[in-house]
Amino acid sequence: MKTSILLTFILFFGLSSRAQLVEINGIPMDTSYTPHSAWVKLKKYYPNVTPVFPKLPANVSATYDIVYATLPKTNYGKRELKLDIFQPKVDGEYPALIMIFGGGWRSGNKAAQVPMAMQIAKNGYVTIPIEYRLSPEALYPEGVYDIKAAIRFVRANAEKYKIDPDRIAITGSSAGGQLAALVGMTADVKKFDGYSAEMDQSVEVQAIIDMDGVLDFTDPNESAKDTDPNKRSAGAYWFGATYKEAPEKWVEASPLVYAGENTPPMLFINSAQPRFHAGRDSVITVLDQYHIYTEVKTIADSPHSFWQVHPWFEETVQYMTDFLDKILK
């Protein structure tokens, strides 16, 4: 119990605003990016921002740390991957939203998605922040496999958690947005399947929400960062190679490559920082050709990580809920 309480504190508030590798239960983790560290960084430039904390609505129940996959053989021994579930207390069958945290594929934790998950759940959704393996523990594409395993688990246990298995959406912020888009666009791409206990279950989703997640890794804002060999980019850490060393990995992980007639409707919620729009307009151009519904919400004068703080938290939740209502209800 003491370990669990300490872990929750570290993952929400962090130990340092600088990159810091620690071992938690024998697993290397970078604790530098948390909701608290995001607020501390942002308030230097936006002094009126305030932190967002979890607040469970009266009509929502919460279940934490459900094991959705057990990996018997990893570099760090047996590994359990976990998710949280927030669901309306009233009986029924609800659409589900799988939620992917960000942090440069290196830092962060599912706790960052919990405040948003709680507020969306009160509007008639089952919301599911999930854990996945980050670059200090496992390189690309292992985290992609983890997210697909989570979708299979959710679909296999839909009745238990009041979920309509035909109405499942996925969302993510920053690196989580890139992952949500990649997973959402590649249901039929076998190389990303990985393995989990519910391989008979579909990994299709019916909607995607991308919050400031890049869709094209070949954009110079991402691919041209590795000019200093002693200061590797987040992408280079995740791929285990720079763009120059292994361009095929950077291309393969770009959601833009997979945009097409089978892509579900998409909502893009963007900050005012152009760097995080990489590939968005190209994806929309492709989807327009197939008459696939898209929306873009760009929050004026906002920084990256806008979803982590007030005053942009409520606006973000409203955009997400409105889109989900339109597509899934």
Rank of each mutant, 00 (worst) to 15 (best):
A38M: 08
V49I: 11
Q206T: 13
D146M: 06
Y45Q: 11
K329I: 12
A38V: 12
N262P: 02
G194W: 03
E245F: 11
R232Y: 01
S135M: 01
A19R: 14
E159C: 04
I269L: 00
T8Y: 12
T8Q: 13
L7G: 01
Q113F: 09
F313D: 10
S282F: 06
L56V: 03
F101I: 04
R280C: 03
G77V: 01
G77K: 07
S196R: 03
M185K: 04
A175I: 01
M266I: 15
W312I: 12
E204H: 12
G92F: 09
A117D: 09
P51D: 13
D65W: 04
E131C: 08
R152K: 06
N75I: 02
L6H: 14
I284W: 05
Q201H: 02
L7D: 09
G260Y: 13
F86S: 05
V90M: 04
T31A: 01
G177I: 06
E137Y: 02
G240R: 03
V60P: 07
N123T: 05
N123Q: 14
N59E: 09
N157W: 05
G235E: 00
W307T: 10
Q273N: 11
F13V: 10
K148R: 14
E137L: 01
Y161N: 04
P311A: 12
Y145N: 10
E252G: 10
P141E: 11
E80K: 15
K329F: 10
T50H: 10
A158H: 07
T127W: 02
R152N: 06
T63H: 15
V90I: 14
E295Y: 01
K122T: 09
T50Y: 12
T242R: 00
P311I: 07
G240H: 04
F101Y: 10
R275I: 07
I269E: 02
P274K: 07
Y195F: 12
T70F: 13
E142P: 02
G77T: 02
D164F: 08
F9A: 01
G124V: 02
K41P: 01
K148P: 12
G143Q: 05
T285K: 14
G102I: 07
E295K: 10
N59I: 04
S32E: 05
T294C: 06
L256N: 12
E131L: 07
W307D: 11
V189T: 14
M118R: 06
Y132D: 10
R155I: 03
T171P: 00
S305Y: 10
S17T: 15
K191V: 15
K231G: 03
Y293L: 12
A150H: 05
K73A: 08
V309L: 10
D219F: 06
E142Q: 15
K162R: 15
E137R: 02
Q318K: 15
R167N: 08
A111M: 13
I5N: 14
F239Q: 02
Q113G: 13
K43Q: 14
D84R: 03
I284G: 07
I66Y: 11
V251D: 10
M99P: 07
G124P: 07
I27A: 03
R18K: 14
I120C: 05
Y33K: 11
P88E: 08
A149K: 04
E159H: 12
L11G: 00
R232I: 06
D212V: 07
A158Y: 02
T70K: 15
Y319C: 11
L267E: 01
F9C: 00
F13S: 13
G194K: 01
S271M: 06
